[in-house]
Amino acid sequence: MSFILTSIVMFVFWMLISGETGVIFIISAIVASLFVSFISHDLLFPNKNTTLSLKRLLRLLKYSPWLVWQIVLANLDLIYRTLHPSLPIEPHMIEIETDLKSDTGITILANSITLTPGTVTVQARKDGSFLVHAIAHGPANGLLKGTMQAKIKAIEGDEA
């Protein structure tokens, strides 16, 4: 199953970046996507249950507009802190606990923490606890409240 899905994804990716429709190019596209899924089909969809991965992908698409808005807020915050003459920062480390189980959920949360205001992930552990460097007390409060963790828990779902 993951073999077929990977080759379809790879073929679509090839056609998107290439755009050539000659016979030689189509043949090499098919050969290349089959070859890539032959050597690394277990990498793209490591989960045995592939339909679950697809369901998660749809939930991830629903999550991304909120993430983009958070990225914009993070940039405004950083512009203020960088260009202010007295440099208003109070760096400190915080530990947060989550109940995420899957690697994908932990990865999405770690990268979201890095992109959202005032925080950078320093360590992500298998049990779902994170070590986070916060640049000030104000923006890090949002993370301690746990809205983002709840959203990512919803992406991960109960099935994991």
């Binding site: 990225i71 950083l78 960088t82 460097h133 640049i135």
Partner: peptide, 29 residues
């Protein structure tokens, strides 16, 4: 402008961990 802010932040912030913030967020934006 954002890239300029990121460069200023990388030069201006006091330590390594706080320099990660402009390099990670503002640069990619």
């Amino acid at each position: 402008f954002l890239i300029f802010v990121a460069s200023v932040g990388i030069v201006r912030f006091p330590d390594f961990y706080s320099r990660l913030h402009p390099a990670g967020k503002t640069d990619s934006m």
